[in-house]
């Protein structure tokens, strides 16, 4: 089994391997290998299309956490320019599970903040698997307040399994850090555009996700608890995660139907990881459009709209 592919993606992986093998042979052989390769390429595309045409919530949930999926820093590289990373909460530490800083988006100054996961073992540990501690949320808030002072819109990218459940995190007030962000973000006098780029895990996601427009990548998920967590509590077995994923309605489409998501950003065929660049371009276009909509409002209008939006949740 190819670990860079999810279980349901394995047939694609097999075809891809065949194509690679043929390419190697192709160099010293003039047979109709070129035809065969393009036949297999077509087949791969058709297969991918059919596999992706009807994904269940559980498959989407796996895609949202795909090991090859682009992370915040990938988007920062492809979407923004002149990025200056800002570190630390000024009180305790720099939490590497959240990255942020000032940058330009098509020339416009913005504050960009996102959860950051790691790709290799060492980086995964450094990033704490994208699970922030209180200092991460406090850093995020410090950056957001900086953005407010300098009249910069805030762009947040959400991708976390959740806030870190650790001893130190509890000692330093994980709950308070999240709660405080929720409260302050509701009144920051600058537009906030949030996009779920991967996993939107609970309060740990929401703590940088109170916004004027919520966008989700097509295969992102957003939920109150991970499917595994929900399954182990309600079904008493983490093996029922796929049932939990379905029951909770964690996909972009379902959440748009429920009125939480403003925009779903389509992903390249096979998911964002098949083309970081294409995904980034499309994300950029959508963030710009959302910013245009929000910057057309006066500050009073913006804040009243945000507050009313928050108050409407659940009605």
């Amino acid at each position: 089994m190819n670990l860079n592919y999810l279980p349901f993606e394995q047939p694609i992986a097999e075809l891809e391997q065949k194509i690679q093998e043929l390419r190697l042979v192709g160099n010293d052989n003039e047979l109709n290998i070129g035809d065969e390769i393009s036949r297999l390429e077509d087949k791969k595309i058709a297969l991918t299309k059919s596999l992706f045409s009807n994904l269940g919530a559980w498959e989407v949930s796996q895609l949202a956490r795909h090991p090859k999926r682009p992370y915040t820093l990938d988007y920062i590289e492809h979407v923004f320019t002149d990025f200056e990373e800002m570190h630390g909460d000024r009180h305790y530490a720099d939490d590497r599970a959240i990255v942020g800083g000032i940058a330009r988006l098509e020339g416009r100054p913005v504050m960009v903040i996102g959860h950051q996961k790691g790709r290799e073992v060492k980086e995964k540990v450094l990033r704490n698997f994208g699970m922030p501690r209180p200092e991460g949320y406090r850093k995020a808030l410090r950056l957001m307040e900086t953005a407010e002072r300098f009249h910069m819109p805030i762009v947040t990218l959400i991708d976390t399994p959740g806030a870190y459940p650790g001893i130190g995190a509890e000692e330093r007030g994980q709950s308070e850090a999240i709660a405080f962000n929720l409260a302050v973000m509701s009144r920051l006098k600058t537009p906030i555009i949030s996009t779920v780029i991967g996993e939107g895990g609970s309060g740990g996601a929401l703590a940088i996700g109170v916004c004027d427009e919520l966008m989700m990548l097509q295969y992102g998920t957003y939920s109150v608890i991970s499917p595994e967590g929900c399954a182990s509590i309600l079904w008493k077995s983490a093996d029922r995660a796929s049932d939990a994923a379905k029951a909770m309605g964690i996909t972009a489409q379902r959440l748009q139907e429920l009125g939480f998501v403003d925009t779903i950003i389509p992903e390249p065929l096979g998911g964002a990881h098949f083309s970081h660049q294409e995904m980034a371009l499309s994300l950029k276009k959508n963030i710009l459009a959302a910013l245009d909509r929000m910057e057309a409002l006066t500050t009073e209008e913006l804040l009243a709209r945000r507050y009313n939006r928050l108050m409407s949740y659940g009605l």
């Binding site: 999240i178 709660a179 929720l182 409260a183 302050v184 973000m185 509701s186 009144r187 609970s202 309060g203 929401l206 109170v210 957003y222 939920s223 109150v224 608890i225 929900c230 509590i233 309600l234 029951a247 909770m248 309605g249 964690i250 959440l255 429920l258 939480f260 507050y307 928050l310 108050m311 949740y313 659940g314």
Partner: peptide, 26 residues
């Protein structure tokens, strides 16, 4: 905590209640 059976609806109650309290604070 948040009620799992209301999924994202209940998660958003965190933001809703916090926003209301922030208004009181202001």
């Amino acid at each position: 905590g948040a009620r799992m059976q209301e999924a994202l609806i209940s998660l958003m109650q965190m933001a809703k209640t916090s926003a209301g309290l922030e208004r009181m604070k202001q």
